[in-house]
């Protein structure tokens, strides 16, 4: 009897500790969401009432709309390039043996561990040198920004596509080839559908990483070309109000939806 009570108490203690940690992680999101619905502009407690008007107020500030559009465009383009480079690389890493296989695959994952600020400064000086050497505009251009974001998307694509490729049974592809399919048809009809979950997950994670990137982008944006996280940072440096909270809520919702979609294709528990 006592043993049962003790075991139950332990279970409650464990779940309680877990709940506290989860609560801690979610606290900032809860409060920023709460603020977005305040009626008054100053974030003081208790709120004087609730209102939805701040969501409409976002549209009155073109910098948010512009920042969102810039982040979205950069994210989509960089994800496209990241997939075009990353998926073949993942195929090579899993399916082929060659010299320097492990160091090369580690190089592709390296952008994940180089700190954002260092990545940004390094790319900045590289662009300065490139501009000097090539005599074309590089610094602060849209395409330089996309190239930078492609670098941080590649590791996600490589990692997630690699994970899903390992689970694919090679004999199905061999069967297709025995039945007369050439390499291209085999890839298109057999391999690609099999690794689609990995590609979808890689694309979504890559896009979301790009969309939320702040540290590296700080060095790469040019005049009149600012991404949403930088607009948010600069606004918050100045003040916090329900408008910026509403911007945050829109961002949380979009990313939450992206996560739910990803989860339908691949179990998130297995890929992160």
């Amino acid at each position: 009897m006592i043993a049962v009570i003790r075991r139950r108490a332990r279970r409650w203690a464990l779940n309680g500790a877990a709940a506290i940690t989860l609560g801690y992680i979610l606290t900032p999101l809860v409060f920023v969401t709460w603020l977005a619905f305040f009626r008054q502009e100053i974030p003081s407690f208790p709120p004087e009432g609730y209102s939805m008007r701040w969501f409409a107020a976002i549209l009155d500030q073109p910098k948010f709309v512009e920042g969102f559009r810039m982040s979205f465009q950069v994210g989509v383009l960089a994800t496209f390039f990241g997939l075009s480079l990353g998926v073949p690389a993942a195929l090579a890493v899993v399916r082929h043996r060659f010299a320097f296989r492990v160091p090369l695959s580690q190089l592709l994952l390296m952008p994940l561990i180089v700190p954002g600020v260092v990545l940004g400064t390094a790319m900045y000086v590289f662009q300065v040198e490139a501009e000097k050497g090539l005599d074309v505009d590089v610094l602060g251009t849209f395409y330089a920004l996309v190239a930078g974001h492609t670098v941080i998307i590649i590791p996600w694509v490589v990692r997630l596509v690699t994970a899903s490729l390992v689970g694919v049974d090679r004999s199905i592809e061999e069967a297709a080839q025995n039945l007369g399919a050439n390499a291209f048809v085999t890839f298109w009809r057999i391999t690609l559908p099999a690794i689609r979950p990995g590609i979808v997950a890689g694309a979504l994670f890559g896009f979301v990483t790009s969309f939320g990137n702040l540290e590296m982008s700080l060095f790469l944006v040019g005049p009149g070309r600012t991404t949403l996280p930088i607009v948010v940072l600069q606004y918050l440096e100045w003040k916090i109000d329900p408008t910026i909270a509403a911007v945050s809520v829109v961002q949380i919702l979009l990313i939450g939806i992206a996560m739910l979609i990803t989860d339908r294709y691949v179990k998130l528990a297995r890929v992160v």
Binding site: I25, T209, G212, P229, V232, I244, Q251, G256, L268, V272
Partner: peptide, 21 residues
């Protein structure tokens, strides 16, 4: 798991905004 991953992707500024509140 989504509720653990979501804050990761929402960006540090947004979470800093939450703590400011």
């Amino acid at each position: 798991i989504i509720s653990i991953v979501l804050p990761l992707f929402v960006g540090n500024s947004v979470r800093a905004a939450g703590w400011m509140v």
